[in-house]
Write a protein that binds this DNA or RNA. Structure first.
Lengths: 181, 181
DNA sequence: TTTCAGATGTCAGTTTGTGACACTGTTTTA
DNA sequence: TAAAACAGTGTCACAAACTGACATCTGAAA
């Protein structure tokens, strides 16, 4: 086990046990059996340990978009379907997602960082759409799609009964039926 | 001049002169003629000095929404018009907005914080809409409106020729003509 | 085995941010 | 008016987050 993974595991445990703000980098490092200094070599700062994932979401959605392009579909629907295509991941690791979410919601700094991921998401999706559509249109569709995902994600967090894909479609239909002309 | 204002002025000057990361709270405080400790009593952290505004935007847009409710209009259009109603402020202080924007773009932490303001905006707008519309619909409209504003804002930053109101309507029309059904 | 690159430790230092308490001036109230 | 409450600030001591420089280790290639 590499020290990076050990640090992530240690951080996850401590953050859940005592909260993000109440655990020091010192503690994380020593639980992982390394030095504080090596923590900061692996992660750019304390919160970074929670945000390591290299935009898997964005790549997944982007891949779906480039593989399933369909002139008939509007770009927003295409992007939302992209989210649906990766939604199974969330359902299959609900526990982990929930506890991570709980940590993030407990701290404003972490919420900010989480939002930054939204921006990265927008960029990935916008780029993949712009292979087929106008640039501005792609960006707008990407932004709206991410917002639909956000809303669906929040609903999914709060309601254990429905799958994320269902929530995504529910929100999309709300859009279609309401102010879509 | 209260110490809070002195600190803000000092910070603005130093951030522009030497960049955000290269200026210490120490420097800001002594330029303002107060102690570091006083700085932290006025602002919760170093970046807070840039984000003092108490959600004026949100209140402005919300006010427009509650005063101009119109059953005929869809909530998204209403919210976008709300942004149009306060857009003159941006045009009239373009210089200040631009230099502030430059500081923020130079530092990832500040960008994150800026995004958090977007969330606050969503909440204000969503709340004011939900006096007339369904809750989920209001939230979705608020989210989309803020994204339209973001896009228009970026265009406005890049292009000195057009007013913000024009950019807002351009983006809204892009939406209407493209994937609005 | 030797060598060499990459990961880690060590240490000293800067910066951010906080708690506790004392001091000053202003406003309220007895 | 005198006393008491209060708000803003300074001072000091300190924890915690981060960084740079350099030493040391370790594992794999030559």
């Amino acid at each position: 086990m590499k020290s990076k993974e050990k640090l992530q595991a240690a951080a996850a445990k401590l953050f859940i046990d005592k909260g993000f703000e109440n655990t020091t980098v010192q503690e994380i490092a020593s639980l992982a059996g390394v030095t504080e200094r090596t923590f900061f070599r692996q992660f750019k700062d304390k919160s970074d340990v929670l945000f390591d994932t290299n935009n898997d979401l964005g790549q997944g959605v982007a891949a779906y978009i480039t593989n399933n392009f369909d002139v008939e579909k509007n770009p927003l629907k295409l992007a939302v379907d992209g989210f649906v295509s990766i939604s199974e991941f969330f359902d299959s690791s609900r526990e982990r997602v929930l506890s991570r979410n709980q940590i993030i919601q407990s701290n404003p700094d972490l919420q900010e960082r989480e939002l930054l991921k939204g921006q990265v998401l927008i960029t990935s999706i916008s780029n993949s759409l712009s292979a087929q559509y106008d640039g501005d249109l792609s960006e707008l569709a990407a932004r709206f799609a991410v917002e639909i995902f956000h809303m669906a994600y929040i609903k999914w967090i709060k309601n254990a009964e429905k799958r994320l894909a269902e929530q995504l479609l529910t929100v999309y239909e709300l859009y279609e039926n309401s102010f879509c002309c």
